Amino acid sequence: MTGIVKWFNADKGFGFITPDDGSKDVFVHFSAIQNDGYKSLDEGQKVSFTIESGAKGPAAGNVTSL
């Protein structure tokens, strides 16, 4: 699925993605970002991701920028 990064705190390594389908915002951890180098996201960035079952509920996985 796709969405827009609502916010991401690079110091803490997590944030939230707002899915394009209008569903509830999804937690994203830096370890789910699939790019080389520094793993961070920018507010407003368009991303593709999967929904994984995290310890505290749904979380984004396999996050790639579009």
Rank of each mutant, 00 (worst) to 15 (best):
M1L: 12
M1K: 11
M1Y: 13
T2F: 09
T2K: 08
T2P: 04
T2Y: 08
T2H: 07
G3I: 01
G3L: 01
I4W: 11
I4S: 08
I4K: 12
I4G: 03
I4V: 14
I4F: 11
V5Y: 01
V5C: 05
V5R: 00
K6N: 05
W7D: 01
W7I: 04
W7K: 04
W7M: 05
F8P: 00
F8R: 01
N9V: 05
N9Y: 06
A10G: 10
A10K: 15
D11T: 15
D11H: 15
D11A: 15
D11M: 14
K12P: 02
K12Q: 09
K12N: 05
F14C: 05
F14A: 02
F14S: 03
F14K: 02
G15L: 02
G15H: 00
F16I: 06
F16K: 04
I17D: 00
I17T: 00
I17G: 00
T18C: 15
P19R: 04
P19A: 04
P19D: 02
D20M: 10
D20S: 10
D20V: 06
D20K: 05
D20A: 08
D20P: 03
D21A: 06
D21G: 08
D21Y: 07
D21Q: 06
G22E: 05
S23F: 06
S23I: 06
K24E: 12
K24P: 14
K24S: 12
K24I: 11
D25Y: 04
V26D: 00
V26L: 12
V26H: 02
F27K: 02
F27G: 01
F27Q: 02
V28A: 03
V28C: 06
H29V: 04
H29F: 09
H29C: 05
S31L: 09
S31A: 06
S31K: 09
A32Q: 10
I33R: 02
I33K: 02
Q34L: 13
N35W: 11
N35L: 12
D36P: 13
D36Q: 13
G37Y: 10
Y38V: 12
Y38N: 10
Y38G: 09
K39E: 05
K39L: 08
K39S: 07
K39W: 08
K39D: 05
S40E: 06
S40D: 06
S40C: 15
S40A: 11
L41S: 01
L41N: 01
L41Q: 01
E43L: 13
E43K: 15
E43N: 13
E43F: 13
G44E: 03
G44W: 05
G44D: 04
G44S: 04
G44Q: 04
Q45L: 07
Q45C: 06
Q45P: 01
K46S: 09
K46E: 07
K46H: 13
K46C: 14
K46L: 11
V47Q: 00
V47E: 00
S48N: 09
S48I: 12
F49R: 00
F49S: 00
F49G: 00
T50D: 07
T50E: 08
T50R: 09
T50Y: 09
I51S: 04
I51V: 11
I51F: 08
I51G: 03
E52L: 14
E52I: 14
E52A: 10
S53Y: 15
S53F: 15
G54Y: 11
G54M: 10
G54T: 15
A55T: 12
A55Q: 12
K56E: 07
K56Y: 14
G57L: 06
G57M: 06
P58S: 09
A59W: 13
A60M: 02
A60I: 03
N62F: 11
N62D: 06
N62V: 08
N62L: 10
N62Q: 11
N62R: 10
V63Q: 01
V63L: 05
V63A: 03
V63N: 01
T64V: 15
T64P: 01
T64D: 05
T64C: 11
S65M: 15
S65N: 11
L66T: 09
L66W: 07
L66I: 13
L66H: 09
L66K: 07
